[in-house]
């Protein structure tokens, strides 16, 4: 019974407070996302990934760094090692589970840094207009014109290999699209009546940007970030594969593929299994991103 009333409370046409309205619209979005089975599938995979990362010490059957040279390169399904072992006898399943932490860490950092930087640049450029706008957007265009992976390579070369530098390099190449998007949104919002009303009440530019423009840019940014996550994961794995991201013995998935590459013809599973993990996770982000776009940004989807 209480469940029904909560549902009715959430689906009411006349919200009684701001929080009520916000929760109601959130719930309606969730309902429409829930009807999209592919998006829910993606979300399910991501929940599993987060759980695996959080509970890694409990789930992993072995220490991901423990070497056991007597049992090196065991095939799939061997005793005690469901996914086999790598060239140093380390359990691949355990390394995969711990590797989920690294993947989530990289994705979370890039997904925080790049959109935040883009939002800042885009809204300031869009709101200020004039020379500020021209200069900032030119810089954005320059970064947009770069080949992303090659630029990230050059950055990592300059900064040195490592996870943090890989995150920095990917963020540096990922922010321009967000800046463009935030600017476009700001331009349409800037001239609306309610912004004029807020300005007449004496709000300064900083207050207008942070309190009244940012909240309206968020939903399209979220969609874009979710769709970009797959690209971020692939870029991070590529850097790891080239030996420029996470360093051994870290169980980063891209680095694991690079390690297994040497035995690909005789011991195929060492490189295959982490590749499947990367594929599954980026597929999940793409599916969820598509679903979120349909919910939050109906004008973009539907085609």
């Amino acid at each position: 019974m209480t469940d029904m009333t909560l549902r009715q409370w959430l689906l009411t046409d006349a919200p009684t407070s701001r929080r009520h309205a916000r929760l109601a619209s959130f719930y309606k979005g969730w309902l429409s996302l829930r009807s999209n089975s592919m998006a829910m599938f993606g979300l399910g995979i991501l929940v599993v990934l987060v759980l695996a990362a959080a509970l890694a010490p409990l789930l992993a059957p072995h220490d991901p760094f423990a070497q056991d040279l007597a049992n090196r390169l065991q095939p799939l399904g061997s005793e005690g090692h469901i996914l086999g072992t790598d060239s140093l006898g380390r359990d691949i399943l355990s390394r995969l589970i711990y590797g989920a932490r690294i993947t989530l860490y990289i994705v979370a950092l890039v997904a925080l840094i790049a959109p935040a930087a883009g939002l800042l640049v885009g809204t300031v450029a869009g709101y200020a207009g004039g020379w500020v706008d021209i200069v900032m957007m030119r810089i954005t265009d320059i970064f947009l014109a770069f080949p992303r992976l090659v630029l990230a390579l050059a950055f990592v070369a300059a900064l040195g290999a490592g996870i943090e530098n890989a995150v920095l390099a990917i963020s540096l190449t990922a922010w321009p699209p967000y800046a463009r998007m935030a600017r476009a949104e700001t331009l349409t919002i800037r001239s609306s009546d309610y912004i004029n009303a807020v300005r007449l009440q004496g709000a300064g530019p900083i207050r207008i940007i942070t309190k009244h423009i940012w909240p309206l840019c968020i939903s399209s940014l979220i969609v874009r970030v979710t769709l970009d996550m797959a690209g971020i994961i692939l870029a991070a794995a590529g850097l790891g594969f080239l030996g420029l991201g996470a360093q051994p013995p870290s169980p980063e998935w891209g680095a694991m593929i690079s390690e297994g590459r040497r035995f690909i013809l005789d011991h195929w599973w060492v490189a295959t299994v982490p590749g499947l993990a990367i594929f599954t996770v980026s597929l999940a982000f793409n599916l969820l991103g598509d679903g979120l776009r349909d919910v939050l940004d109906p004008k973009e989807g539907g085609q």
Partner: peptide
Amino acid sequence: ALVGYSMPIFWLGLMGLLVFYG
């Protein structure tokens, strides 16, 4: 298209080598 956007290119290359060459 979905698989193309989600697959790490270097891994697909390795798998291709394994199957079609190896």
